[in-house]
Design a protein around this nucleic acid. Sequence first.
DNA 1: CATGAATGAGCCTTCATTCAT
DNA 2: AATGAATGAAGGCTCATTCAT
Lengths: 193, 193, 193, 193
Amino acid sequence: MARTVDQKRYAERREAILSAAYRQFATNGYDRTTTAAICREAGISSGTFFHYFPTKLDALVGVLLAGVETTRGELQRITAASPGLAAVLNYARVWEKDIGDEHFGGFAGAVGGLPLEPSVAAALDAESSLIAQFIGHHLATAKKQGELRDDVAVETLSTWTRWLMDGAAHSAVQGEASSGELSVAISALLSAR
Amino acid sequence: MARTVDQKRYAERREAILSAAYRQFATNGYDRTTTAAICREAGISSGTFFHYFPTKLDALVGVLLAGVETTRGELQRITAASPGLAAVLNYARVWEKDIGDEHFGGFAGAVGGLPLEPSVAAALDAESSLIAQFIGHHLATAKKQGELRDDVAVETLSTWTRWLMDGAAHSAVQGEASSGELSVAISALLSAR
Amino acid sequence: MARTVDQKRYAERREAILSAAYRQFATNGYDRTTTAAICREAGISSGTFFHYFPTKLDALVGVLLAGVETTRGELQRITAASPGLAAVLNYARVWEKDIGDEHFGGFAGAVGGLPLEPSVAAALDAESSLIAQFIGHHLATAKKQGELRDDVAVETLSTWTRWLMDGAAHSAVQGEASSGELSVAISALLSAR
Amino acid sequence: MARTVDQKRYAERREAILSAAYRQFATNGYDRTTTAAICREAGISSGTFFHYFPTKLDALVGVLLAGVETTRGELQRITAASPGLAAVLNYARVWEKDIGDEHFGGFAGAVGGLPLEPSVAAALDAESSLIAQFIGHHLATAKKQGELRDDVAVETLSTWTRWLMDGAAHSAVQGEASSGELSVAISALLSAR
DNA sequence: CATGAATGAGCCTTCATTCAT
DNA sequence: AATGAATGAAGGCTCATTCAT
């Protein structure tokens, strides 16, 4: 029983630290975020921080991997609900909401500025692979169903779709809002006409 | 006479420092780049560095503004050579070459990770405004000439074009090459069919 | 328990740093005192120094405020022991001993040379107000008891008394000893004859 | 002829640098005054500064020695005009005006904060010896003329007089004005009653 | 588990002085 | 004489990490 309580307490605290770290990284960038600031925001001591994450980089990787899990869940949900082009467009809408988050841009920048540490690169790769695979899979289905234009290979269309998503994300970081436009753009680019 | 020599010498040295700073920022990120490393790479002393750039941030802004001038030159050249859709596609090819540069990605990340200092933001704005204006101008011309699809407003097409460019840049940063594809994608997205 | 020990240890260490800082400031002046020198003299690391005093200026203010407390204590002791003119003369003797200290002059100079930072000015004000009030209070009593000359207002006599004290301090800084003369001078200036 | 012009030009420029240095030292203290700031205020280049004063310390000594000359002149003037106690009181009035100068305090502090360099100490000594000798001489005369109290030795009265002057100077530095009071205090302390 | 005092390497920046022109 | 670019040593301060309690 105690074990159960401990594990719950442990998980909650870990979550709290991750959340604090995310906000700090997003606001100040990785290098300018001090572990002390994370501790303060999470309401813990520096020693405690160390219990959960041996190094600052571990905390960043933790945030990143948590993001991967969230993404995985969203993709699964969407896959279950709608196949083909609709799935991709639905995810574009989710994406658009994510990149509109006040912290998204800062966090993306914080990570981008890093000389790619292997563990960070791995987490980043995991996330983008997940998405690339999702798009590839559903566009292949869409192709079979004749939903896509015919003059360009599916693989190329997948790449272009990701470009639009990343580009929209970049715009969002610059503070240019673009509500609802992304899925329209993707549709315009991919659809058979 | 001495004046002429001095100014030339001054400009050359400034250029050399800027170049060294660019490579360092690109490789290690802004915060992890030490002024000592820039000095070493430029072959100058720390005192000389601060003679040219009072602070590390000033050096970054210097790099950025030099980039703006380069971009301005390229855009003028292209504008003079080809109007309308062709101009945009031509710049897309230049862009594709730029983002393929081994340092481009690192430098973009280095800048992105910064809590936007006003001077940095201003330089960044100057560059993107230049490009946005260029694209807007030439797409408007293209519209008049019937080169563009009719179902989407020109302003929207401009935004989508920038999305594709930024997205391709992001891909390049991730190390995914995309030789020649960008202009094809833009053409596919914009062209009247 | 641990708490008690910690607080004691903390206070002792703080005291040791303050003491080292005092000697350094007195010997070399504020600007020429390096935090490294204070650390060396106190036997601590640079990090520890900043754990106790975030900036070098904070250490100076700490020294100053500790001095204010010492002065407050002396004045209270003297006030309790002897009222009127005697109290002032007794404090003059304490003052004479203080300014004879080998470090007094240097420290006074170190502080005087500073472009008055608000926090330094405040500490300095606190000390001189304490003394001015003490002198004013006891001379007023002396006046009532007919111990003072009658041709000059009490407030003026207070000022003059402080002038003699400050002047004697200045002499001491210049290395001119003046054992026991200050209280005689004050007495000669103030007494009813 | 050219020689005369050169010498005049040299002297004027030296004067200008000294004046700029004085204001800078007074405003910011010796250590915090940069040679660059002195150059800027004097309207010269760093190289020129070096022609006149090989080191920053030399500039300070220059300022100090110029002050000694000024003081010497004042004392001679007063000595010629009035002997005995009157001379001392007259100089007290001059002193009071000097210490009221907006830069006096700062400059005094700037010098006081220095770890006594021999050349600085020498200049300071020269000035205070001048004054001590002046006071000693005129009080001896006053003694003979029966202008002084009888219960204290002349040497002691000289010391006390300097204490009052230094103390008043200290008050002035602290920003407490004391117009006209100093000579009254000295008179009250010294006079036969 | 939790705490927070302690460490010390490393960074940006300043500035007196030199010297080629 | 005058200039101002160049130097480089030195200093205050930060912060990730450790460890005794």
